[in-house]
Simulated scan of single mutants.
Amino acid sequence: MSTPQSELNSVAVHTPAHVNKKKNLKKAVSFWLFVGPAFLTFCVIVLIPFFYGMYYAFTDWNGVTGNVKWVGLDNFKYLLTEDKQFKTSFILTVKYTVVAVILTNVVGFALAMLVTQMLKTSNILRTIFFMPNLIGGLLLGFIWQFIFVKGFASIGTLTNIKFFTLPWLGDANTAFWGIVIVSVWQGAGYIMVIYIAALQNVPQDLIEAAKIDGANRLQILKNITIPLIAPAVTVCLFLTISWSFKVFDTNLSLTNGGPFKATEMLALNIYTEAFVNNRYGLGEAKALIFFIVVAAVTTLQVYITKKREVEA
């Protein structure tokens, strides 16, 4: 026969485990109630279509009928040996990415430096510089198409300035720079906000000490400011690289790849192949190659810049 003391000891031993089990169950239920819907949506919208796309990259499917023919690596062989437009679009996209990433970050950083000065109009300027980012790429492209075709032509007629009389969307070289101008104008404001947050965390006492020691603005920028905002540089480079590689809406609405496909970026080339030419399997093969390249480039960029952060 158990004594009251032994019963109390039994309760003391077994209750914590029972209570912990209930707590863990509540935590698990709460976790899946919050995370479950988002994870399910991510799987349905992103993961499942992604793996389906990988499968269709090895097929000859037109994207409409139910006749899906497995062709193995034939799509990739065709792209690497015969599809000249794919190679042209790929090289053009790389060129555009290099130019757009550099200019967007330089302009964004310059704007951030400007609005973090003690100016009365700094808040207004921040709003003005960020506003282009709020306009969708398609709408922005149509607006700038009107500016390049009608606005610049009118100014050129009145002033005879060569810059405004150029065939901005009618020539391959000027059309390329037209896309760059629009993309930088749209993206620099967003990058500016990230750099502003980083610049505001730079200790002012270090800058004041450097000034007392005789350092000029360029030396302060090079040796103090830029090393301390290295994490922001990593984020901005990652964003601008991914944006530039995936540029589509601005390219579509501004030039539609013209003239004569001279400005057809890779994303637009994939769209045309899959949904205009009705060669969905070939389009998916292009998209898979595109995904691997973008993932490799962005991973390498993050690795290198993160390493420089540690060294700094």
Rank of each mutant, 00 (worst) to 15 (best):
F58N: 00
L79Q: 07
F86I: 00
L158Y: 00
A110W: 12
F163A: 07
F152P: 09
N62E: 08
P132D: 01
L79D: 05
K120D: 10
F50Y: 12
M54T: 11
Q117L: 10
T59I: 01
W61P: 00
Y56A: 06
D74R: 11
Y56Q: 10
V106I: 15
F90H: 00
L103D: 07
A110E: 05
N105W: 05
K69Q: 04
K120I: 03
C43H: 13
Q145V: 11
N67D: 08
F39D: 04
I45V: 14
T65L: 00
T127V: 05
C43Y: 15
M54S: 12
T127N: 11
K87R: 02
L47R: 06
V46S: 15
V44G: 12
Y55H: 02
E82W: 02
G108F: 05
K162Y: 05
K84V: 02
S89G: 00
Q117R: 14
A112N: 11
G53A: 13
D83Y: 06
F90C: 01
S154R: 11
I155M: 02
N123H: 12
L73E: 07
L92K: 08
Y78P: 02
K95N: 03
F39L: 15
F164Y: 11
V101L: 14
I124T: 11
M54K: 01
D60L: 01
G108P: 02
N133H: 00
L158F: 03
D83I: 03
M118F: 00
P37Y: 12
F146M: 15
T104M: 12
G63Q: 04
I102T: 10
L166W: 04
I161K: 02
G72D: 09
F152I: 08
A38S: 15
F86S: 01
F109K: 07
I147M: 14
N133T: 00
M118E: 13
F51H: 10
V46E: 14
V71A: 07
G36Y: 13
V115S: 08
T41Q: 14
F42M: 14
G53C: 10
G66E: 08
V107W: 04
T127H: 04
Y55T: 07
W70Y: 15
F42K: 15
G137P: 11
L103A: 14
I91T: 12
A57N: 03
L73Q: 05
F146G: 10
T59Q: 00
I102P: 08
F58C: 06
F90D: 02
M131F: 14
I124G: 07
N133F: 07
Y56I: 03
V71P: 11
N67M: 02
G137W: 04
K120H: 08
G72L: 11
I48Y: 13
I102H: 09
L79N: 08
M131E: 01
S122R: 14
V98Q: 08
I143M: 15
I155N: 07
T93H: 05
L166K: 13
L114F: 10
T88H: 08
S89P: 10
Y56V: 04
